[in-house]
Design a protein around this nucleic acid. Structure first.
Lengths: 264, 264
DNA sequence: GCAGCCACTTGATCCACGTCAACGGCCGCG
DNA sequence: CGCGGCCGTTGACGTGGATCAAGTGGCTGC
């Protein structure tokens, strides 16, 4: 989620420039723990980018609502629900999935802390998928009408929404290619790793909160195939895995194996 | 249904051999033919929605630039180009594709008159793919900074951009499933049909401006497989096809075969 | 007219992965 | 304690579609 270097107006845009307004970044809203969550949040860039204007910051913090905690297996929203809000994962993991006409589940994605879900509901004006928690999970809810209205007043918010939407177009298509099972699994692990790392969490050692069946469904493989690939990856020293605890032993090689899926 | 040759934006394209363009490449918007094009344009909803305010309408018409005509095989933009504008196809067909690390082309989509391309470039701030014309083609170019600025003043424009972006998230993922070759080809034909029909063009009889190889690449099949499926579809009366002229003889059945890919 | 090329079709073979099946570990429950 | 359900692993086998190969027809250039 960090900005790529191509469009920097200034060398280090994420640092808070011009320290004229040396004020607390987070207004009175909320307890101390909010700050920690927001550091890893998908909207952190916006909050930092507009740090010079307290009114905008307050506006964002005023319209966010905390929902949860959900226990594992609960719905954040359901396929067909009318679209009113987008959500950011605060803590935990959320799986999005739809059900095809034969009743089989189709896993669309896994969403980690700091990531936003529900953007694909804007067009149909209904959620086109279920969002199901895979462990104890908390979310932030943003009323879409409100954040849209805010976006008309705060170009940084509008720009951020455009960018998140655009990014998701790219990621949604990445699984479409015809790639080997090895490439799919490797790319999956490397992608998870990078996304954890991007939020400041350890990227080479983490817990898989989803089942093998969910992984397989997401990657459009049979769960047996995922199992076989994982054991082979372990046997050649690419990873260590016991149960759902994963250690990446050779991330560059992993990324290499999955590289055609990882372009973004 | 009978065909309506007069509705075709162009007759079947002949190879136009090297001829310099005598007229300016970027004619100013505003001639009488605009009205026809704009009826089928992706922005028509916006223009109609805000039709009560001439100022907004003028704003949109002021910022649009016409580019082309391109001959078959020309680039509207290239992978890696800095992102400054989005494009709408006015007439013709555009193929978007990227090239993977082994040098093989990956077709991402085909874009018909009235459809918008380039939205996936907002996030990386560079075009993540090539856009190549498949026949004589004209486009509209919208400066993204300008249309963004306009969106802050015209909620209808902002809303429309959000919706187009959101819609593309859904379509980008539709090929990701593991579907049979039959389902893929059927869905491809049914989708093309619906998109032509949505713009007022005949949906059950049209010209395939892309090669079998392009179709196969897009559907992640071998071109031989596409060929076989098409001949089988013809043999069972689903379609008629000679060269690239296609007639859908049983659209409902076609949609049924491809239905898991067509959700959206 | 002929050679070369490209798009498309059709047939023959191969293989990566799906499917089916069996098994073991873990957990909650009666 | 024994039982059943779920999750994950591993083996045996079948198949859909890729790959390889050959042939046709149309178009281009010489």
């Amino acid at each position: 989620m960090t900005d790529e270097p191509s469009n920097k107006p200034f060398p280090t845009p994420l640092k808070i420039r011009g320290r004229a307004h040396a004020r607390p970044r987070h207004p009175p809203a909320g307890d101390g723990r909010d700050a920690d969550f927001c550091q890893t949040c998908a909207f952190a860039d916006v909050c930092l980018a507009v740090g010079y204007g307290m009114t905008e910051l307050n506006a964002l913090h005023c319209l966010v609502e905390h929902v949860g905690p959900f226990r594992s297996g609960e719905y954040v929203f359901r396929d067909g629900d009318p679209f009113r809000s987008i959500f950011a994962v605060r803590a935990g993991t959320v799986k999005t999935s739809s059900v095809d006409h034969t009743g089989r589940e189709q896993v669309l994605g896994f969403h980690l802390p700091g990531e936003v879900i529900g953007l694909n509901a804007i067009y149909p004006d209904r959620f086109p998928c279920n969002a199901i928690t895979l462990e104890k999970t908390q979310c932030c809810r943003f009323s879409f009408p409100k954040i849209s209205a805010l976006a008309t007043q705060m170009p940084a918010v509008q720009r951020h929404l455009f960018r998140m939407l655009s990014k998701e177009i790219g990621t949604a298509g990445s699984l479409a290619g015809d790639h080997s099972a090895d490439a799919r699994v490797a790319a999956f692990l490397a992608d998870l790793s990078e996304r954890y790392a991007a939020r400041g969490l350890p990227g080479s050692r983490f817990h898989l909160s989803m089942s093998r069946a969910d992984i397989a469904n997401y990657l459009r493989l049979a769960s047996e195939t995922v199992s076989r690939v994982l054991t082979r990856f372990r046997s050649i020293g690419l990873i260590d895995i016991v149960e759902r605890e994963l250690v990446l032993r050779d991330p560059p090689r992993l990324r290499d194996i999955g590289q055609d899926l990882l372009r973004g």
